[in-house]
């Protein structure tokens, strides 16, 4: 398979190899008047890269993330496109043609996901240890008890949680701690891609910072690629290599982070950038970027049917 197109944005690293290629992906919600939530999205994710996906509510960024590993629920459907995963072993996997069993094996093993509000997705009546064990056993049924224990302690240590917390129930952990456990769970099987959908939105800024630092550090250690979805553009500018900006289901700009900040081409990107007052810049700097009291039609656009 040599269909990998040139990356839509400029890759920061010339030796970068793609790990995921999304071509012409369209996702439609089959409601009375079908809504196209993602329109002809093209995206290339490189190995070890943090790709930011920015956009506001209803722009289709979550739908896109779900569609990438086919987690979208009907009435949403993939109307066209190709999603190819380029395995580290050199094989290519066409995600859209996977059968159910293959798909289950693929998810979490090669590509894992941290959902929005994931910290509330932990099972409240099972200990962290049991939940990590269940995940491991589901995918690696032949692991011994000792291996499972080592692996669980290892991932917790990596995300900055004391392994002694293995015996805790989710309600005994703080919000930040639970989110770390979720990230630990996502990297349990050493996936090559992690998709994070607003992983820190519900947390306080200081805790959010700690977790971001952990993600950046882990990425450097383990060399997985991250798709980081959020509406917080300044945050993306700080942590990601490249940023894709979505508006009404379309990727309107895909650019290296520093270039996007200095020289955004699409008016919507400029508008988004102007929406965030700078903390350290001169007082009132944001006003000069021309943000007014109006709302764009995009902001009031239809919400994604759920």
């Amino acid at each position: 398979m040599t269909t990998t197109p040139a990356p839509a944005g400029t890759a920061p690293d010339p030796r970068a190899r793609p790990v995921l290629t999304v071509e012409d992906l369209t996702v439609v919600y089959e409601v009375d008047e079908p809504v196209t939530a993602v329109k002809n999205a093209d995206l290339t994710l490189h190995r070890g890269e943090i790709l930011g996906l920015a956009g506001e509510s209803g722009c289709g960024k979550t739908t896109l993330a779900y569609a990438i590993n086919r987690l979208h629920r009907p009435p949403a459907r993939i109307a066209s496109g190709r999603i190819a995963f380029h395995d580290a072993s050199g094989d290519d996997i066409d995600i859209l043609s996977l059968e159910d069993a293959e798909l289950r094996a693929f998810r979490w093993n090669k590509l894992s996901m941290v959902f929005q509000g994931a910290m509330n997705a932990l099972n409240p009546v099972a200990t962290v240890r049991a939940q990590l064990r269940d995940t491991l056993l589901a995918h690696r049924p032949r692991m011994t008890r000792k291996e499972i224990r080592h692996r669980s302690e290892d991932v917790l240590r990596r995300v900055g949680v004391d392994p002694r917390r293995l015996g805790s129930y989710p309600h005994e952990l703080s919000g930040g701690m639970r989110q770390r456990v979720m990230i630990a769970m996502a990297m349990l099987l050493e996936p090559q891609i992690m998709i994070m959908d607003e992983p820190t939105t519900a947390l306080d800024v200081v805790v959010q910072r700690d977790i971001l630092r952990e993600i950046v550090r882990l990425r450097e250690e383990l060399d997985f690629a991250v798709v980081f979805i959020t509406h917080d553009l300044p945050l993306l500018l700080e942590i990601s290599d490249r940023i894709a900006v979505m508006l009404d289901g379309e990727i309107v700009e895909l650019e290296a982070a520093d270039r996007l900040y200095r020289d955004a081409r699409h008016p919507y990107t400029r508008r988004l950038l102007g929406s965030f007052p700078s903390l350290s810049g001169s007082r009132g700097a944001f006003i000069r970027t021309g943000v007014d009291e109006t709302e764009t039609p995009a902001a009031t656009a239809t919400e994604e049917p759920s």
Binding site: A79, D91, E102, F106
Partner: peptide, 24 residues
């Protein structure tokens, strides 16, 4: 769509089934 994609993927490229092997 998936069926169509599988068909087009298998016909010209015999590697495709093998590529799915390691995921099992």
């Amino acid at each position: 769509l998936a069926r169509a994609s599988r068909r087009s993927g298998q016909a010209p490229d015999t590697d495709a089934p093998a590529a799915e092997e390691p995921t099992r």
